[in-house]
Simulated assay, not measured.
Amino acid sequence: MHAVAEPALQQQVRALYGEHHGWLHGWLRRRLGCADHAADLAHDTYLRLLVSGRTPPPGQARPHLMQIAKGLVIDRHRRQLVEQAYLDAIAAQPSALAPSPEARAIALQALLRIDAALSALAPAVREVFLLSQFDGLTYAEIAARQGIAVATVRKYMLKALEACFLAFDGDD
């Protein structure tokens, strides 16, 4: 981003914030039922505008802000579902096997990364991966169930595994 453009973008976002923050916070508060979570997501919405480097065209501010906020609400809900499923799985284990808080945080972050990677895949690819990894089906069983060739199952699995691997690319 050019140094000259940055202050202009900041001014535009500041103007949008001043004009629409109250409305966005209220919309999110009604949607989430919690003023604190609404404040966090409203903040994240404007942060996304800054990071993207783009502001909405005139007259499109509220639909644009709402679209960003809806995505953040969906992401938040997905994270909560993953976290709750993980906590439920831990609760089902004997307390002697319970992971430390640090291990829980690391595992949860890994699960969220995998969830995000799988969510970005085409539905058919994601379904093949889930049938293999969670239902334990063989490639031939998946192919028969999905009505596709075994070679397609292999191709889809490669895509899904690559997405999972890339979710952790760059970690030590």
Rank of each mutant, 00 (worst) to 15 (best):
Met1Cys: 07
Met1Tyr: 06
Met1Thr: 10
Ala5Asp: 15
Leu9Asp: 06
Leu9Met: 11
Gln10Asp: 11
Gln10Glu: 14
Val13His: 09
Gly18Glu: 09
Gly18His: 06
Glu19Ala: 15
His20Asp: 04
Gly22Gln: 08
Trp23Lys: 04
Leu24Cys: 04
Leu24Ser: 08
Arg30Glu: 14
Arg30Leu: 10
Arg30Asp: 15
Arg31Thr: 14
Arg31Lys: 12
Leu32Pro: 06
Cys34Gly: 10
Asp36Gln: 14
Asp36Cys: 05
Asp36Ser: 11
His37Thr: 14
Ala38Trp: 00
Ala38Gly: 09
Ala38Pro: 03
Ala39Tyr: 00
Ala39Met: 01
Asp40Trp: 03
Asp40Ala: 13
Leu41Trp: 07
Ala42Gly: 01
His43Arg: 13
His43Ser: 09
Asp44Pro: 00
Asp44Ser: 08
Tyr46Thr: 08
Tyr46Ser: 07
Tyr46Arg: 03
Leu47Trp: 09
Leu49Ala: 02
Leu49Gln: 06
Ser52Tyr: 08
Arg54Lys: 10
Arg54Ser: 09
Pro56Leu: 06
Pro57Trp: 06
Pro58Gln: 11
Ala61Pro: 09
Pro63Ala: 11
His64Asn: 06
Leu65Gly: 04
Leu65Val: 02
Leu65Ser: 05
Leu65Tyr: 01
Gln67Asp: 11
Gln67Glu: 11
Gln67Tyr: 02
Ile68Arg: 06
Ile68Lys: 07
Gly71Tyr: 02
Leu72Arg: 05
Ile74Asn: 04
Arg78Trp: 11
Arg79Glu: 15
Arg79Met: 12
Leu81Thr: 08
Leu81Ile: 10
Glu83Ile: 01
Tyr86Thr: 03
Tyr86Met: 11
Leu87Glu: 08
Ala89His: 06
Ala89Trp: 02
Ile90Gly: 05
Ile90Asn: 04
Ile90Leu: 13
Ala91Arg: 14
Ala92Gln: 10
Ala92Val: 00
Gln93Leu: 15
Leu97Tyr: 03
Ser100Asp: 03
Ser100Ile: 06
Pro101Ile: 02
Glu102Met: 04
Ala103Leu: 08
Arg104Gly: 04
Ala105Tyr: 04
Ala105Ile: 06
Ala107Thr: 14
Gln109Arg: 14
Ala110Met: 04
Arg113Lys: 13
Arg113Val: 13
Arg113Leu: 10
Ile114Leu: 12
Asp115Ser: 13
Asp115Trp: 03
Ala116Gly: 04
Ala116Ser: 07
Ala116Gln: 12
Ala117Ile: 09
Leu118Trp: 01
Leu118Lys: 07
Ser119Thr: 15
Ala120Trp: 00
Ala120Arg: 10
Leu121Thr: 09
Ala122Asp: 15
Ala122Leu: 11
Ala122Pro: 00
Ala124Lys: 04
Val125Asp: 10
Glu127Asp: 10
Val128Phe: 00
Phe129Ile: 07
Phe129Tyr: 15
Leu130Ile: 15
Leu131Cys: 05
Ser132Asp: 12
Gln133Met: 07
Gln133Cys: 06
Phe134Arg: 13
Gly136Lys: 06
Gly136Met: 03
Leu137Phe: 10
Thr138Asp: 11
Tyr139Ser: 05
Ala140Arg: 12
Glu141Asp: 09
Ala143Ser: 05
Ala144Arg: 01
Ala144Met: 01
Arg145Lys: 13
Gly147Lys: 03
Thr152Glu: 05
Val153Gly: 03
Arg154Asp: 04
Arg154Glu: 09
Arg154Gln: 12
Tyr156Arg: 10
Leu158Ala: 15
Lys159Thr: 10
Ala160Asp: 07
Ala160Phe: 03
Leu166Thr: 05
Phe168Asp: 10
Phe168Leu: 12
Asp169Met: 09
Asp169Ile: 05
Gly170Arg: 01
